[in-house]
Design a binder for these strands. Sequence first.
DNA 1: CCTACCGATCGGTAGG
DNA 2: CCTACCGATCGGTAGG
Lengths: 198, 198
Amino acid sequence: MAASRKPTAKDEPNRRAEIVRAASRLFAEKGYAATPIRDIARAVDMQSGSPFYHFKTKHDMLKAVALEGIASISRAVSKAAERGDTPRATFEAMLLAHLEQLLGDDGRHFAATLLHESHHLDPAALAELIEQKDAYEALWQKALRELKRSGEIADDSRVTRLLLMGALNWTVQWYRPNGGRTVKQIARQISGMLLKSR
Amino acid sequence: MAASRKPTAKDEPNRRAEIVRAASRLFAEKGYAATPIRDIARAVDMQSGSPFYHFKTKHDMLKAVALEGIASISRAVSKAAERGDTPRATFEAMLLAHLEQLLGDDGRHFAATLLHESHHLDPAALAELIEQKDAYEALWQKALRELKRSGEIADDSRVTRLLLMGALNWTVQWYRPNGGRTVKQIARQISGMLLKSR
DNA sequence: CCTACCGATCGGTAGG
DNA sequence: CCTACCGATCGGTAGG
């Protein structure tokens, strides 16, 4: 898995992205504070000081991971939200997109870092992240509003949204691929729990 | 808040419990790996090496916090489960008890540590914790089973339980006391979302 | 991006 | 429980 040749500065076009990817995996698995930069460097075949050529501080790495995490979830769910023709179909497409980002191979470590390690960010970076997160959650608030208008949900308050986010985001803690249930089945079960008609 | 007298070995009857309490708060706020034992010692007016008189390792402190966390949640919810006369009343009492433990002043830091920092435990301690957690969640599975029998819920599968746990446990991320909603209101909203009749 | 390195911090311990 | 301390690790940097 690790390339044994010695990379040089001109070698890869985007070493920075590789670092972010490796960092996301290690932050997700061992936590930000418990991950030495040396481990991230080794994961991308660098020497221990070299990541600092791409990032000024370790915090900047975390910031990059967290922002990329919320950005790709946001992108995927926005796109899904455009496709539904009914409030219910829209909602179900959004559920599926959100879960695919959280549980899929590509975004899983970004999402886990975003959800569990963001509190290590400095206040400025945290504020930036919260701004993105608020914009993202507004998509859900809108979807809930339309479900209420069409009579498929009784309450579209902020608390409802937060409880829904909890049910979704908590899947990161227990979902295992090859664990019997597909992501699509879980999405369907959530909509079955929340929506009235069938 | 911090006593300025110098405590001696015979001084307090239960310094160990104070350490666990302080550790729960710091682990919850800054994370296990980012909390130096020196900070815990200072929080209980000890010198930096003294916590090791009570705990062999830092991991043992985390283990104590996590096990006390699951134990008190388990105790509170068990007690609540005994009091309801209908499946619905039982369920609502359990919801309230669980949330009070997670969000109340006493258990809040224990719960946050339990939920967010347990992965730092060594495999043996983690296995012990999971055993307790499984026993706890069986209480919920039973409650869901009875709600299904009485026709107030459509699905009492394991996934339903996990989604419910997610909605509940995620409150730790967003609930703020004096934030408008009481714990009781949140509990009621969850039962309103999940249960069919009114 | 590598080499070589520094200062600070940290978990843990010996001895009392 | 305190004093005094050690060895290891870690984020970060200078210079090339």
